[in-house]
Design a protein around this nucleic acid. Sequence first.
DNA 1: CTGAAAGCGCTTACAG
DNA 2: CTGAAAGCGCTTACAG
Lengths: 386, 386
Amino acid sequence: MINVFIQLVSPLDEHTLTRRNMEADVMRMLKASQSDKPLAEGSADALSRVPLSVERLRPPTIADVARIAGVSLPTVSRVLTGNIPVREVTKERVRAAMKELGYRPNGAARALVQGRQPIVGVITRDTTLYGYTRMLANIESRARQAGYLVAIVALDPADLQNSISALDVLLGQPIVGVVVLDYTAYDTRLKDSLGNLPISTVIHGDQTDIDVPHVRVDDRKAAYEVTNHLLSLGHRTVHHVAAPARGGEPQIREAAWRQALLDAGARIPEVHRTDWSIAAAHKAGAALASDPEVTAVFCANDELAFAVMRSIHEAGKRVPQDISVAGLDDQPLAGVWVPALTTYRLDFDWAGVAALELLMDLDAPLTRSGEPLSGLIIRESTAPPR
Amino acid sequence: MINVFIQLVSPLDEHTLTRRNMEADVMRMLKASQSDKPLAEGSADALSRVPLSVERLRPPTIADVARIAGVSLPTVSRVLTGNIPVREVTKERVRAAMKELGYRPNGAARALVQGRQPIVGVITRDTTLYGYTRMLANIESRARQAGYLVAIVALDPADLQNSISALDVLLGQPIVGVVVLDYTAYDTRLKDSLGNLPISTVIHGDQTDIDVPHVRVDDRKAAYEVTNHLLSLGHRTVHHVAAPARGGEPQIREAAWRQALLDAGARIPEVHRTDWSIAAAHKAGAALASDPEVTAVFCANDELAFAVMRSIHEAGKRVPQDISVAGLDDQPLAGVWVPALTTYRLDFDWAGVAALELLMDLDAPLTRSGEPLSGLIIRESTAPPR
DNA sequence: CTGAAAGCGCTTACAG
DNA sequence: CTGAAAGCGCTTACAG
């Protein structure tokens, strides 16, 4: 640690400038304005070249505001919180001082003294995937209504080290609890990090042994029913364009597709795996379209299905006359594609809100009943084979 | 405030149980386990029925950990931060104590003492719209790389009161700065709330007088060029399916469309306004499809365009032979829709990262050069009129 | 309505 | 390597 000697040229009184703050700031300024070389101890020369603007040294505190306004510290606090009446004249003086200094309350100090944990963490995966997007939007809206801020962390299940450090950043905040948007993606080794932090989660399969409060978005049932729908139309089997595998394990939607075929005694064809990207699905679709055996395709989500339908079109075949295609999610565009997509609606809006409410309820039940709007939606993209 | 007298039956020593904590917790327990009626002052009877579990009274602190582990406070802190070497045996004892107590560090206290502001705020609008989704995902990823947590606040520009309270929640946190994803949507009255908090923003038009660090996603240029493209194909005029108006003012994309028609001396038809929803666009599309005058439609984003194409199909007309349709954004599905959508690519990925880097750079320039991948993409949905 | 003092949970020099 | 003390910026009883 370098020793810093600075002559105060500040209008603020000495009391408010602590040594630590000054050092940190001078270091920062040095780094920005000079070289990257570390400073020799007590190197007053280098310091003299630092453009020392006092305003940048340290953000103003209520002590500064109080001094400028000529009132006491608690009075400033009262103006801030509004909990206790303050004379209007005084109030005005304090407000003016705040404005003059550009004062902003320090959230950390506030949270500390009040013992409040005003942030809800959301652990998600790729935030651009439809389901996560919707859950996130609904959680944010509901959380704010309850006075909470939402912090998001998108974990890459493939990168454990990164996930752990991401969680550390999250847990270093005043977090009241965490909503985990995909419990199965949530590595066991991460659970230790959370310690006894309250969590709630969204279950995407049919697990029944989850010991944390959870809501269910039943991907398994959805995928099973979509596959069954195609089989019931008379297709011998159903091909699958899958989500990325997760550490060797297939995704829930893929497993359910497989189970449906198994239960029906249908042949289980090779899976076409994607990374959720349109490009990968488009490529998979091309392979499927050129295979005369293929009469029905179930895609792990609607967007993959759109891309596959494009490939079929490019191959000169038609949906559903030549090949039936079904998706999963029922994202808004499913109804307007030509042909409109047969899919299974999952109620992510409900899931987001319900998971958050579960988290905030001190005496939460393990699961929450409710009325998710889910179900198979048969549109134009599926038909009996010719 | 009720007066609470509790006989300590706790293994924790008295020092760590402050009156305030006890009161708050007892209040909570009373509320949860008994009735909603407020307690009479000093009502010891009611209190005796409260199941007083000491574990729930107050989360453990490093003082508790230190006591259990038989070490001093600073030692626990050293194990926590890892900044200063601690004997391995001691470390183990401390870790065991943490585990036993279910200790979690208090983020607020940490942020306060370290003077760190570990959160980046993101002010957005509807987080489910494509551009916002992408910017958010990129900001989150880049911010975490820099050790920051991302907190999001979705403001409804139409609801000022709600927006102000939302900002208050955000500003009550240890925020290092705020990225505003749509500066034009950001009401002037909100600017005061932010005080001197560092912000950076994404500009969607061609404003040049913005006095905060910003990056540009040039919606105006994009909409102008798309409209021009349609005109240059020989269409007499171009109809528009618009985004919702914002307090009377038309959106940037709409204004640019109008300007392009004006500059070309083309007739300016009535706008078909939507609320960004697929349903509204589908309805607008039906009206457009039934109007024999309509030969070209520019939609404020790709998703609206998809819905309009559906309507045209339903009316028995074809895209682009009967009516040309163009969108804006170039979201991933644009290339696989049938017909593939002519649109203008905006580089939201770049914008998100660039805006964040601008925010975190102490000596940030007002704007950031870079290489956004933007431009008109002509596909299958536009053609000359017949 | 206002001020002096204590305390929130943690980290960091300082002194062994 | 470890402990006693000060301090981060704020709020909240307590005492006028």
